[in-house]
Simulated scan of single mutants.
Amino acid sequence: MFGKRDIDPVPRTHYRSERVSAVNGQYFFATREGTLEGPFFTRYDAERHTEIYIQRMVKAKQLINHQRQAHA
């Protein structure tokens, strides 16, 4: 996948990797920010919460951008 995230200085190729991992029977997902979120009891729960996390991060970015525009 070729693209540029807001935090990247230049466009480059990003390779998707498995975000969900199991540790001692519990599931976690890794974020681009370098955090490990969890634990979750099932892989399904971890995958579902991955989507929720992404939606929350997108919404937070939108709110920040809205506040910056309002104060500009």
Rank of each mutant, 00 (worst) to 15 (best):
F28Y: 15
G3M: 12
T13E: 15
K61C: 07
A60L: 14
S21G: 00
I64W: 10
S21I: 15
K59L: 15
Q26E: 08
T13A: 11
N24F: 01
H66T: 11
E18A: 14
Q69S: 11
L63C: 09
S21C: 07
R12E: 14
F40Q: 01
R56Y: 04
I64Q: 12
F2A: 04
Q26I: 00
T13I: 15
M1F: 07
A70G: 00
D8W: 10
D8P: 01
F29G: 03
Y44F: 05
E51I: 06
I64K: 14
T31A: 03
V58W: 09
R43A: 07
H49I: 00
Q26N: 02
D6K: 15
Q67M: 08
E18N: 13
A70M: 13
R32F: 12
Q62T: 09
R5G: 06
D45F: 02
E47V: 04
T50H: 12
Y27Q: 02
V20H: 05
N65L: 13
E33H: 11
V20Q: 03
M57E: 15
R43P: 00
G38S: 02
Q55A: 15
P9H: 11
H49K: 08
Q69C: 06
K61Q: 15
L63H: 10
Y53D: 03
L63R: 15
R5T: 05
N65K: 14
V20C: 07
P11W: 07
M1D: 13
R19S: 06
Q62P: 00
A22M: 13
F2P: 01
K59S: 11
A72F: 02
D45Q: 08
F29M: 05
D45Y: 01
Y27L: 01
N24M: 03
R16V: 06
Q67W: 09
R19P: 01
P39K: 02
T35Y: 11
H66K: 15
I54K: 13
G38F: 01
E47M: 11
P11M: 08
M57I: 12
R32A: 14
I54D: 12
A72G: 07
A30W: 05
Y15C: 07
A46H: 04
R43D: 08
H66S: 08
A22I: 05
D8E: 13
K61M: 10
H71T: 11
A72M: 10
I7A: 13
P9R: 14
A60M: 12
Y27R: 00
G34S: 11
Q26A: 03
I54Y: 10
F40M: 02
E51K: 13
E51S: 10
S17K: 14
I64N: 06
P11I: 10
Y15Q: 12
V58E: 08
R12N: 11
M1I: 10
H14I: 04
F29E: 01
